[in-house]
Structure formats: structure tokens, C-alpha cells
Amino acid sequence: MLMVRAIIRIEKVDDVLKELSVAGFPSVSKMDVVGRGKQKGFKFGDVLYDEIPKEMLLLIVNDEDKDDVVNIIMRIARTGENGAFGDGKIFVSPVEEAYTVSTNSKGL
């Protein structure tokens, strides 16, 4: 199992969630986050904006589904043909075990 964490633009979240659900990945946790990327925020005049609001999506998927999920997020979350700073970042990490509390069962 793998955890896919995607930090993306707020305005792209609904489209990404819809596409993931259509593709068979309806189980997602969503959190409001703030932060900045390599560009260290952006500056307008004398004001520096370095805590930019984003959404973080968390999915636990089987190893064989990782590429499908990552490709959906990358395709839908990207702005414009070539993308832009601030479109987001995706992190994939291993998950050793998962349990369902209501059924006391192990696994997805």
C-alpha cells in the first residue's frame, strides 16, 4: 500500500476529486494547508505572501494503482498547457498497515 499526498491549488480540488471518483478512487481525505514552494511565495510591492493557501489530498492506494492516481492528479491539477508555479506537489510514501475501525479488519 502507498500513501499519495497531493498539495494542489484550491480551485482544482473539486475537479481532481471528481476525476478520482470516476476512476474508482472515491476514498480521499482533504485538508486546508498553507505554505510555499521553491519560489518562496510571491511579492506585490512591499508585501510578501509566503503562506499561500492550498488543499492537501490524502489517498491510500494499492501499489498497482499509484501511477493511475498520480497521473489523474497531475493532469487535472495542472494549470495551462505547460503548468505554472504553485500548481502543487505530489508525495508518495509506503504504508505498512491499514485498519478499518468499524469492522476491525486489516487492509484497504
Rank of each mutant, 00 (worst) to 15 (best):
Asp15Leu: 11
Val70Leu: 10
Gly35Leu: 04
Thr100Gly: 13
Ser102Glu: 14
Tyr49Ser: 11
Gly88Ile: 07
Ile10Asp: 07
Val13Met: 01
Gly24Pro: 00
Ser93Tyr: 11
Arg75Ser: 12
Gly86Met: 01
Pro53Val: 08
Gly83Ala: 10
Pro53Glu: 11
Arg78Leu: 10
Lys89Gly: 02
Ile52Asn: 07
Ile60Met: 15
Arg5Met: 08
Asp65Thr: 08
Val28Thr: 01
Ile90His: 07
Arg78Met: 11
Asp32Arg: 04
Val47Ala: 11
Ile72Met: 05
Ala23Val: 00
Val47Cys: 02
Ala77His: 03
Leu58Glu: 15
Thr79Ile: 10
Pro53Tyr: 02
Ser105Ile: 04
Leu108Glu: 08
Ile60Pro: 12
Asn82Ala: 12
Asp15Asn: 05
Phe25Lys: 08
Phe42Tyr: 14
Val34Gly: 00
Gly86Tyr: 03
Arg78Gly: 05
Lys54Tyr: 13
Ser93Asp: 12
Ile7Tyr: 01
Gly37Arg: 00
Ser29Glu: 10
Glu11Pro: 08
Tyr49Asp: 06
Asp68Cys: 14
Asn62Met: 15
Met31Glu: 13
Asp87Lys: 08
Val61Glu: 11
Val33Leu: 03
Thr103Gln: 13
Ser29Thr: 04
Gly88Phe: 01
Val70Asp: 08
Asp32Ala: 09
Lys38Trp: 10
Phe42Leu: 01
Gly107Leu: 13
Ile10Gln: 07
Gly83Phe: 07
Ser27Val: 02
Asp32Lys: 03
Asp67Arg: 14
Gly86Lys: 03
Lys38Asp: 08
Leu58Thr: 15
Ser105Lys: 13
Val22Leu: 04
Val92Thr: 13
Ala77Tyr: 02
Ile52Pro: 02
Phe85Val: 15
Ile7Met: 06
Gly83Trp: 05
Ile52Met: 07
Asp68Phe: 09
Gly24Thr: 00
Ile76Asp: 02
Glu11Lys: 04
Ile60Leu: 15
Gln39Arg: 11
Gly86Arg: 00
Ile52Trp: 00
Phe42Lys: 01
Ile8Leu: 01
Asp63Gly: 13
Glu55Ile: 09
Lys18Leu: 04
Arg9Lys: 02
Met56Lys: 05
Val28Gly: 01
Lys43Glu: 14
Gly24Phe: 02
Ala98Ser: 15
Ala98Gln: 10
Tyr99Thr: 14
